[in-house]
Design a protein around this nucleic acid. Structure first.
Lengths: 247, 247
DNA sequence: TGTCATCCTTGACACAGATCAACCCGAGGT
DNA sequence: ACCTCGGGTTGATCTGTGTCAAGGATGACA
C-alpha cells in the first residue's frame, strides 16, 4: 500500500486531498476537474451506484467508507477492497464477476461525469498514464492481500488490517501521536473486518482481545485503537515491509 | 477471467496469439511491435528478470508457465498470479511489497524493450487505453481470486482452479473435446497448486482424489484431466459465472 | 424507566485442513 | 538391473478456526 508516495490533489471545495489523477501539472487539471465534477452522498448500507448511467467512470471518496464485496449464492461474502477517503473507484461490474460497491458508513463521493472525464483523458495523455499507475498500485495491493488471505493466521490477519488502517490514517494526517504511540479510529464493525479477512466475526473479536491482552494494542471503547509500539504490530503482522511508518 | 473476449495479436514469428495491446489498428501496431521486440527463454525454477534493466515494462509469455509469488520470511509462500501463454507481465517489484516472477516450467517470453515501447505508447493513446483495460481486467481477476482464498472450501478451491485452467486452454484452442467432454493438461505440480490456493499439497492431492472418486473429473496419469460434464465442475466450484463455456 | 436493537464478547464443542510419516510410481542415470 | 530422486498418494493425529449459544454494553426511543 504505497499510498503515502502518491501525489495528491485538492478540489476547490472538497475537505480532503484526493489521490492524484495528474502528477505533473496539478493546477491546470484541477481547473478542468472542478468544472466537470459533482457530489453524491450515500447512506450507510446503501449500494453505491451512479445515477442511471452504469457508473462508467470514476469517483473519489470524500468522507466515509465504502467497500467492494463479492458474494456467493449461499451468502458467503468476501470484501475485496476498501475505499477510504481519497480513494478512487471506477468501472465495477464491467467484466464477468461483478463485485458490489456498498457504503459501509455514510459516504460522500466526488464524482466525475463519464463523458467529459474521458475527453479530458484523451486530451491529456499523462492523466491516462497516471490512471494506469494507480490501477497497477491497486493490483499490487490486491496481490499483497492475497498473501494475507491465503497464508496468514487469524492473529496475523488482524494485525495486518490494523496496520493498513493505521497507515492510511497517517497518510491522511487523521492520526494522533502521543509520545511515539499512534492512535486511530476503527471505522469498521467486527463483521466488516471478518469479511475483509476471510474470518468469522467471533474469531476477529477473540484475536483483537488477544492482541489487547498481549499489550500490542490498547482499546478505548470498542472502536478507538492505540498502538504503543508500531514495531510490535508489524511483527505480529508477519510483515517485512514497514511502509516507512516506523521512523 | 474474461480472457476469451480479449482481442489478440499475432507476432511475426510467435506461435501463439498474444492478448492484444491494440484492439483497433492491429496491423499498424504489429509492424511497430515486431521491430522492437526480442526473445528470452528461462529454465524451470529460474527467476524471470529482464537483463539488467529492472524489467521496466512488458513481456508476453509465448510458451511455458511463469508464476507471481509472494513469500514471508518464514518461507510461507502464496502465488498471486499465473502467467500462461499469451499473458502479459510488467513492472513487478516496482512498489513496496514486491512479488517474484518465477518460471515454473521452461518459459519463452516475447519482450519489448522499455524505451521504444513507452514511446510507442505515447504516440498511440489507444494502446495506453488498452493497457489500462487489461490492467483493470487483471485487477478483477485478482479480486475474484480473493473470494476463492478467503471463503471457499478446499474442494471448491480445487474446482475453481481446474475451471480457470480449463477456460484458459479453451481460449487458446489447446483443449480437446470428445463428445461434450473437455480435457486438458495440468501443467502445475500439486505443490504449485497448493501455493496458488492457500492449501498444503497433501490437501490438494486428497481433494483431487475426491473429485475423481465423485466422477467430476477423470485423471489420465497424474497430469491429464478429463472433465465429462463442465456443469458439474462449475457446481463444485460454487461459481455462478459460467464464463460462457458451457454451451 | 424500560424496551429494543445493534454490536460485541466469551465459552463449549465440532470439524476442515495442517502436520507428520510412510510409501508408491516412473524416469533417468550408471 | 539396480539406485536415486522428484512428484504423488494415503493414513493417523493434532489444532486453529468455525459453529452454536448465551449474555454484556451501549445508544435510540417511547
Amino acid at each position: 500500500m504505497p499510498v503515502a508516495q502518491l501525489q495528491s490533489l485538492q478540489c476547490s471545495d472538497c475537505p480532503i486531498r484526493h489521490r492524484a489523477v495528474c502528477a505533473r501539472c496539478e493546477a491546470d487539471e484541477l481547473e478542468a476537474l472542478n468544472v466537470i465534477k459533482y457530489y453524491r452522498s450515500f447512506q450507510a448500507g446503501q449500494p453505491v451506484i451512479w445515477s442511471g448511467d452504469q457508473m462508467n467512470f470514476v469517483g473519489s471518496v470524500v468522507s466515509g467508507i465504502a467497500t467492494l464485496t463479492q458474494t456467493m449464492e449461499d451468502g458467503r461474502t468476501q470484501m475485496v477492497g476498501l475505499l477510504l477517503p481519497s480513494d478512487f473507484v471506477g468501472r465495477p461490474g464491467r467484466s464477468g464477476a461483478a463485485y458490489n460497491v456498498v457504503a459501509t458508513t455514510d459516504v460522500v463521493m466526488c464524482c466525475f461525469r463519464k463523458k467529459p472525464f474521458e475527453e479530458l483523458m484523451a486530451r491529456t495523455p499523462h492523466i491516462a498514464h497516471r490512471l494506469l499507475e494507480m490501477t497497477l498500485d491497486e493490483l499490487d495491493a490486491a496481490r499483497e492481500w492475497m498473501l494475507v488471505l491465503g497464508r496468514k493466521t487469524a492473529r496475523e490477519k488482524i494485525a495486518s488490517l490494523l496496520l493498513i488502517l493505521a497507515r492510511r490514517d497517517v497518510s491522511l494526517g487523521a492520526d494522533e501521536r502521543i509520545g511515539g504511540a499512534l492512535s486511530f479510529d476503527l471505522k469498521l464493525t467486527r463483521e466488516a473486518m471478518a469479511d475483509y479477512l476471510g474470518l468469522t466475526l467471533e474469531t476477529v473479536s477473540r484475536q483483537i482481545s488477544a492482541l489487547k491482552k498481549a499489550g500490542v494494542i490498547i482499546l478505548e471503547g470498542k472502536r478507538h485503537v492505540i498502538v504503543p509500539d508500531m514495531r510490535r504490530l508489524i511483527e505480529e503482522a508477519g510483515d517485512d515491509s514497514d511502509g516507512g511508518l516506523v521512523g
